[in-house]
């Protein structure tokens, strides 16, 4: 999320810089959310639903590795596309609040 890190201000002498902390928490929440969605998406794509055993088989493991790589690539491409479009305004702010 390189576009998140850019807004980081420098630390004050002591105490808490609440803007910086808030930004770090947003970054943490965002990465966690992306990770959870990736887990769910790759589970749907790669893991069978017969559950006759508790281990991942070879095919599932290979699929998961590729799925993670592909999901990450899609994330990067979509991020570039959105930024090139300057589409920050397309979200919740788009309905006149």
């Amino acid at each position: 999320m390189s576009f998140l890190g850019g807004a980081r201000s420098s630390a004050p002498a002591g105490g808490l810089n609440s803007d910086k902390i808030e930004m770090a928490i947003t970054e943490l929440d965002t990465i966690t959310d992306f990770f959870n969605r990736m887990v769910s998406s790759c589970h749907t794509k790669c893991v069978g639903t017969r559950y006759t055993e508790g281990d991942l088989n070879k095919a599932e493991m290979v699929c998961i590795d590729r799925c993670v790589a592909k999901y990450n690539e899609v994330q990067k491409k979509v991020g570039e596309k959105i930024q090139s479009r300057g589409a920050a305004s397309a979200g919740g702010g788009g309905f006149g609040l």
């Binding site: 990770f35 589970h43 893991v47 559950y51 508790g54 281990d55 991942l56």
Partner: peptide
């Protein structure tokens, strides 16, 4: 049995995704 295998498999899946994700990032 299905629930137990499903749980085990989901945890292993989640761990594997976590490892790959950590490597990539």
């Amino acid at each position: 049995a299905c629930v137990m295998n499903c749980t085990e498999k989901f945890l292993k899946h989640s761990e594997r995704v976590g490892s790959r994700f950590a490597e990539l990032n």
